[in-house]
Amino acid sequence: MKAMTKVVWLALIGAASGILIAYYQYLTMAPELASALMDQLGSLGMLFVVSGLQTAVLTAVAAAIGFKLRTKLELPEAKLPDKSGILAALAIGFASSLVITLAEKFVFMQYLPDAMESFSFSPLYLAAAVLYGGIIEEVLLRLGLMTVILWLLTRSQKKQNAAEGLEPAKRHVSDLQAWIAISVSALLFALGHLPATAQMIGLSVPIVIRSLLLNGFAGIGFGWLYWKKGLIYAMLAHIMAHVFNQLVLMPLFL
């Protein structure tokens, strides 16, 4: 599949996921916030248009840049099916979900609202999490941001090779460069969850620490998969983290 076709498909998924996540957030808002939002936008339909279009555009831009720049880097093209990639994605997805659920239960539960002490399954939330979290966040944070960071970190190779009269097909990504990109993208992945957290439960020092630690831990795993196995396996791990969390671990522990 050509890169431009992939960009279009991802933008369409971005639009759908933007609508789903906006609708879920609207349903879980405090009544006064929901009322203020409707006063500002005029209707639920306009909320869907704005959120869907915004997410589609961001996704398309990140995907276009990521697909363009990664051709200059030594990054793996995801092979399907790759047994080791699938197993790694399942393991990282489960480990991320397990750490998040156990930390929620035994460390951070005392800082959360009483309404979050028990689990209530939401098909809408799971669908939004799989599409937006599992696919779109990986496009934005790994394909987009992480690729840009790696491209910037390896620019010195281009200057050195030009001075020596050499220009390899792709720039080598060192372990140090990869881990810098993984860490930065994981940190921004964690920070990106703070606005939604603030809207749903408010922010305090323990809540901020919770968001940074738990989302950052998962982001490192997803970034490692992108580096070693490719985007599809980072997406698979992220999707399975939500599936394990919503269908297995949270019902079991909460």
Rank of each mutant, 00 (worst) to 15 (best):
L58K: 11
L37E: 14
L33S: 15
M46V: 14
Q160A: 12
L126S: 01
V99F: 15
L12V: 12
A56L: 05
G144M: 07
K105M: 07
N245S: 15
F244V: 12
G66P: 08
H238C: 13
V248S: 12
V248K: 11
L131I: 09
Q157G: 06
V173N: 07
V57F: 11
A241E: 14
P81G: 14
V57W: 03
R142Y: 02
A181I: 00
G230C: 04
A198Q: 12
L58N: 08
I207Y: 07
W9A: 10
G42H: 06
D175E: 13
G133R: 01
L153S: 05
M46S: 03
E164V: 03
G85Y: 09
H172S: 13
V49G: 04
S96I: 06
A63G: 03
K105I: 02
L176E: 10
A178E: 00
E137H: 07
L33V: 15
S183A: 13
A128W: 00
P206R: 03
L143I: 01
I13Y: 01
A115G: 09
L90R: 02
A56N: 02
Q177W: 06
A11V: 02
Y233D: 06
M240H: 07
A186L: 01
M240N: 03
F121W: 01
G216R: 07
F108M: 10
A178P: 00
Q199V: 15
L141Q: 07
L166E: 15
A198S: 12
A178D: 00
L153Y: 01
L90G: 05
L37W: 10
E104C: 05
G230Y: 01
A3C: 00
L252Y: 09
L231M: 13
L252H: 04
P81L: 15
Y24A: 09
E77M: 08
W227G: 00
L75D: 10
V61Q: 04
A78E: 09
Q54K: 15
A56F: 05
V205L: 15
L145C: 08
F222Y: 15
L44C: 00
R171T: 00
P123N: 06
A16Q: 03
G221P: 10
K158V: 14
S118M: 03
Y24P: 00
P76K: 10
L131C: 08
A62W: 04
L131D: 06
G45R: 01
G42N: 05
T101I: 08
F94K: 10
A88K: 12
F253Q: 05
K6H: 01
A218C: 10
D175H: 10
L212P: 00
K170T: 14
L12G: 06
V148Y: 06
M240A: 08
A127H: 00
L166Y: 13
Q177T: 04
L247T: 02
L152Q: 15
T101N: 09
A22K: 04
I207N: 03
V99I: 14
A88I: 11
S174T: 15
N161H: 14
Y125V: 02
L102A: 09
L44Y: 06
M250V: 00
F121L: 05
Y26W: 09
M200V: 12
E164A: 14
F67M: 09
A186R: 00
I136N: 07
L252R: 01
L194P: 05
P31I: 10
G52H: 05
G165P: 10
E74F: 04
L20H: 01
W224S: 06
F121M: 01
A190C: 06
A169F: 06
S35M: 13
I201G: 07
V243Q: 11
T147A: 11
N215H: 11
V205E: 14
A95G: 12
F67S: 04
